[in-house]
Write a protein that binds this DNA or RNA. Sequence first.
DNA 1: CGAATTACATACCGACCGGTATGTATGTGT
DNA 2: ACACATACATACCGGTCGGTATGTAATTCG
Lengths: 201, 201
Amino acid sequence: MKTKQRDVTREKLLQAAFCEIHRQGFQAASITNILGDTGLTKGALYHHFPTKQAIGLAVIEEVIEARLDELIFRPLRESEKPVETLLEIMGSVHRKVGADFIKLGCPLNNLMQEMSPLDEIFKARLNHVLAIWRQAVEDALLRGIRQGQIRADVDFRAAALFIVSAWEGCIGIAKNLQCPDMFGLCMSQLQVYVRGLMRTA
Amino acid sequence: MKTKQRDVTREKLLQAAFCEIHRQGFQAASITNILGDTGLTKGALYHHFPTKQAIGLAVIEEVIEARLDELIFRPLRESEKPVETLLEIMGSVHRKVGADFIKLGCPLNNLMQEMSPLDEIFKARLNHVLAIWRQAVEDALLRGIRQGQIRADVDFRAAALFIVSAWEGCIGIAKNLQCPDMFGLCMSQLQVYVRGLMRTA
DNA sequence: CGAATTACATACCGACCGGTATGTATGTGT
DNA sequence: ACACATACATACCGGTCGGTATGTAATTCG
């Protein structure tokens, strides 16, 4: 079972790359810095990944998407009260992720803002993750309509797009204000929006 | 009046720097590229600006803030029906700015996302512009309350913060989807939120 | 008109970047 | 046990970066 060592090294590189990219952005992320954190060298990195771009794409798929899935997508899909769950997640994410994530912002959105206009392949992979997010929210709203919690006349497609957009917007602004309280204040208004989509009790 | 030539050169450098930064981000913006657009050389640039950072800061104050003021802040301040004006601006901005601005995103937000965690001085200047924006929206909402268009129980401070956040979020997502229609769809839901703050007619 | 300052242009520097060529242990299948 | 591939480490390359030292027209001023 020594074949596991390969995966251990690869995972160590991916995690270090994720941290460096999260802190510096992709273009400013230095391969030397990534390796410095791990104790490995360029020989190891370029054995596992052909280019720097490939590292970035692997980080998106294997780290960022996985974390978002665990934090948001899966809870939303598996919930039997999706609207409640959506509101609950909105209010609790900042406690589940570390303080880094408010200071450094959403890794997905950071990469989208930086790389999408510059690199089509990045754009495609990033938009794929974004599409999953949108779909998860859209399904939650749709089930909310069927369960009678959300008004039937709501444009759930537009609403899902807006919810994800505003969500990322709140994270981005909080990142600049460097203030968790502002993030909570901002997200509370997103909850107000969602409650506005619900049937008046 | 030959002292004007200095300002012409400086302005030419600022505009070229703004374009390059808008396209590539600040860190990836190449001074050589900026100069290539203008026909000038490093001698000129470093005569007017001591460092690359100084160029970035000048772009924020003299280009970005000025454009936002013309496009959003001033119309909002000078309007006698601020809530209507706010809704109108939300629906029309994407037509007033070029198509570049949907493909490349909001110059202010781009810089905030990239530079705020890395440079305190950038963060301060960027947050100053952001504060003006928030204040303009907050004042609009407050006047809306006094004029009876907005419900008196609305937390106008939180609402203003959210409106700006969601606004930037919509621009950012539309930039990744590379789709003006999606921007319109997204902003329409922000208008829905704002109308939710208004008194039911 | 001559001196001094301003407004640039040119040439060059060290630092760092992503990437590669090569060397070397460590398994691994037969 | 031997041939061979795997999994790294080391040394180095060309290119680009921001920044600077120096040179030179143009302008201003006494």
